[in-house]
């Protein structure tokens, strides 16, 4: 019974991971930039599905709302505004392709070697809602984290030592400062982008 449940969840994971991988490879392979944007949309949705399966429901919904519903719209607007026939499909020479493929394979080899050889301190949080000792969803935990109140308790292993560096560790003071910095950063970006993209007279096409 447990085995069947595991198989079901594993096949869901496999489906999402396969979608993400196939669509990422399709982004590389396609020559048409609009199609690349569509494949990226599916890759990002696959990533959001993986987030939901990994128990990060708030992050998954934020990914859908902001990446898929915001950044992808920006990218596709950029594609549309600069798409004038010849720029939709620009081909790269085969020499560049081989070089890029070699670099890609080498990079993947390095990363895979690091992943397989490192001894990760794994533990499965499982139901992440039990972090504060009572039933608190990830939204509450993230909210408190951003207010500067990191969770006080951490799960303990068999010997009774806390597994995570949380709460009691004086180095962990939450993410209030980065949160405020990011809000100012977004304001600056908003003003900067609006200034950069203001309507100007378009220079006549040269050659």
């Amino acid at each position: 019974m447990e085995r069947l449940q595991e198989i079901w969840l594993q096949s869901l994971f496999g489906f999402m991971a396969l979608t993400t991988v196939v669509c990422s490879i399709a982004v590389v392979v396609t020559q048409n930039v609009v199609r690349a944007a569509v494949w990226l949309l599916f890759a990002l949705s696959g990533t959001a599905g993986l987030f939901f399966l990994l128990g990060a429901d708030f992050v998954g919904a934020t990914q859908l709302l902001i990446y898929v519903g915001g950044t992808m719209i920006l990218v596709i607007f950029g594609v549309m505004l600069t798409a004038r026939g010849p720029f939709v499909s620009m081909k790269t020479q085969s020499g560049e392709w081989t070089l890029a493929a070699l670099v890609g394979v080498a990079l993947f080899g390095i990363v895979a070697a690091v992943v397989w050889s490192t001894k990760w301190p794994t533990m499965d949080w499982g139901d992440t809602s039990k972090i504060r000792g009572e039933n608190s969803p990830t939204t509450v935990q993230l909210g408190l984290e951003f207010l500067g109140i990191p969770p006080q308790e951490s799960p303990k292993d068999a010997a009774g030592t806390p597994l995570a560096r949380l709460g009691r560790d004086p180095a962990n003071i939450g993410y209030l400062l980065p949160f405020e910095i990011v809000s100012v950063h977004l304001l600056v970006v908003l003003i900067g982008a609006a200034y950069l993209a203001r309507a100007k007279r378009r220079k006549a096409a040269t050659s």
Binding site: V38, L41, S45, D57, F58, A61, T62, L64, L65, V68, G69, G70, M72, I73, I76, F77, M80, P137, T138, T139
Partner: peptide, 20 residues
Amino acid sequence: NIAVFFMLAVMSVEVFGVIL
């Protein structure tokens, strides 16, 4: 637990279909 947020997030995927 994030029902409202989920609804808003999923409905924002529609826009891409409109542009496409």
